[in-house]
Design a protein around this nucleic acid. Structure first.
Lengths: 133, 133
DNA sequence: CTAAATGATACCATGTTAGTATCATTTTGT
DNA sequence: ACAAAATGATACTAACATGGTATCATTTAG
């Protein structure tokens, strides 16, 4: 029962590292060295981050990646969403009633509440905060 | 990004159904009819519930399943744990530091807090409560 | 003894996760 | 012009988890 996959994990670490370089362009070889993430996998992750607008990429010699937003505006829930889709805690429970005879059972309500809480908690953490510690 | 698999979903429905029968032994055919769950799959789920002591099973003609505890003492987080393992939200984050240079980053702390919250929330919901609605 | 139930177990199909490999394109420096 | 160094795009593979099936053994009521 886990919530965060390695995709997301790697992405967050890469973003933190890039953020610390404040404005410098960071290339994959440097990231691989620093974070010990398999190179091709990291590349794919970074391409994802680029497409979603978290980082800007620069090709060619001296190229690499830079944050596209202020670290304080990058929410980890959005990063997670990029790789794992949106938060849907009660996927299964919505298909059929867990307790037949009741239109909307209390479990769904409670799970919904949980989801809102989780989502607002995760939604409040940014890369910027992670840097400050 | 989901939290509950079909195993767990089916298990909870089955437990609710059995609980309503208060002390009667409920056999698989009846459950299949009522819950529209594939028979062999449901059997496997029930065997899991039996092994973990949520229900007691009776073989032979007239056999089936009965709750082994009061509905109010069956917590859905334990049911989920049976099929999906324990709650470990920061599995990935624990392996390596998301923010190198810091022994314990604040993300881990926050995820830990989330996990405690989730676990206590889910840990407070019982089959008994689901029945009351 | 038989029918109806569960126990144990092995199997299969599909999807997701994690990771690899390859070639195309862009850009900088000489 | 050209080569080197970077990213873009994309296809592929391996391992694992999920969802589901099938089979045979065992128990038990009648």
């Amino acid at each position: 029962m886990k919530l965060i996959t390695r995709n997301t994990d790697y992405a967050i670490r890469a973003l933190c590292f890039i953020a610390r370089k404040e404005g410098k362009v960071v290339a994959v070889p440097e990231l691989v060295k620093a974070l010990a993430i398999p190179r091709p996998f990291l590349r794919k992750v970074l391409q994802g981050l680029t497409k979603k607008g978290f980082v800007r990429s620069y090709k060619g010699i001296g190229g690499g990646f830079m944050l596209a937003k202020a670290p304080g505006r990058i929410y980890i829930i959005d990063v997670a969403g990029t790789f794992q889709g949106p938060l849907r805690l009660n996927e299964c429970f919505l298909k059929k009633e867990p307790c037949p005879n009741r239109k909307v059972c209390c479990l769904k309500k409670r799970i919904d509440r949980l989801e809102k809480y989780l989502s607002s908690e995760l939604g409040s953490i940014t890369i910027g905060e992670l840097l400050k510690g």
